[in-house]
Design a protein around this nucleic acid. Sequence first.
DNA 1: CGTTCCTGTAAGCAACTACTTGCGCACTTC
DNA 2: GAAGTGCGCAAGTAGTTGCTTACAGGAACG
Lengths: 197, 197
Amino acid sequence: MTVRDELLSAAARVYAEAGYRGATTRRIALAAGVNEITLFRHFGSKDTLLREALARCQDPHSAELLPETPSHPMAELLAWAGSHITDMRARQALIRTCMGEFAEHPGLFVPENSGPVRAARALTQYLTRLRQRGLARAEFDPSAAAALLIGTLFADAMGRDIMPDLYANQPEKALKEYIALFLRGIGADPKPRGAAR
Amino acid sequence: MTVRDELLSAAARVYAEAGYRGATTRRIALAAGVNEITLFRHFGSKDTLLREALARCQDPHSAELLPETPSHPMAELLAWAGSHITDMRARQALIRTCMGEFAEHPGLFVPENSGPVRAARALTQYLTRLRQRGLARAEFDPSAAAALLIGTLFADAMGRDIMPDLYANQPEKALKEYIALFLRGIGADPKPRGAAR
DNA sequence: CGTTCCTGTAAGCAACTACTTGCGCACTTC
DNA sequence: GAAGTGCGCAAGTAGTTGCTTACAGGAACG
């Protein structure tokens, strides 16, 4: 790993746990194991470094994909939502900090490409197909339903450790409950009668 | 309003939009319209002031209450969730900042008394009664269902302005959709057949 | 009138911030 | 062997931070 990459990853790490003001150039340089002057030689300013570091954090998403054509909603949604919520939990600190500082530093975080927004797009599409294929009620609004499920997963991932009272169930059990309630809500019976084909 | 109250409210305001590090004593004093020295005379330190200011922000909750005995779930939940989400939107900046800085300053924010946790407790109770009275399916888990609905409302209140793509519907329409999906999910038919009594 | 309480003003403290300049050392490339 | 490149080290800039000390004015109350 080059010094440059070391600095970028350290910047993201320190920013996630200390915020913009707390991510001082000294602290970032220390975390990267390089001299503070080297930081300025590579990026010129703290702002440039953080901008680049956070931009790099947004792309990689090895999350599970929803199938083009739905067939077993329960299994498909469980796997997808599970990988999605796991991903969010891993980025929890960064996401929380970005949210908290969005009003003050809007440019650092690009909501359009964020995990939740992309997930919601994929889910809306999936739900629309589900409806088209008659696997769900016709009356519900896919985008509102997507917002409901994504919001539930997001809040769980962000709030479970802070508010244990609110999240009494184990993570996996909670996820199953969410999906079951959700599928019932959109009129896709969680218990398939006989194998579809 | 006494100088002391002026300082407390200014502290909460400045903290909400600038965070702990950004809420400098000079800035708070300026916002309160008093001298910076007066701040120290009253509270001794920045930390004491912020702690007191944020503690005061947590109590007041004039939110609508859920009825002791459920009778019209759709109407009752709509009114309750509406007032709850409105309240959260009003405190959006403060909540976001608290969340973002919770890891760094845990003492400033007491999750047990926070709006969402109290709301979840009330909702869990309401749902349990709903089930007991046979107004909903017997198989769902009230606490998981409460986490689902609260999470949905929380994410909507926090994310709607940041991620307009995710929240395509108007706030009120979205809320109706959420509640309808939710009631279907727990097996409480959103369309009551004939007036209950 | 005198005392006490609350507030403002002036000045300053040490510590930390982002960022700069200048020098030297080790390595690679020609 | 010369030239460049990438990095660390020492020192220092001006500005901001939380917080302090010393002094003065004005209002309330005895």
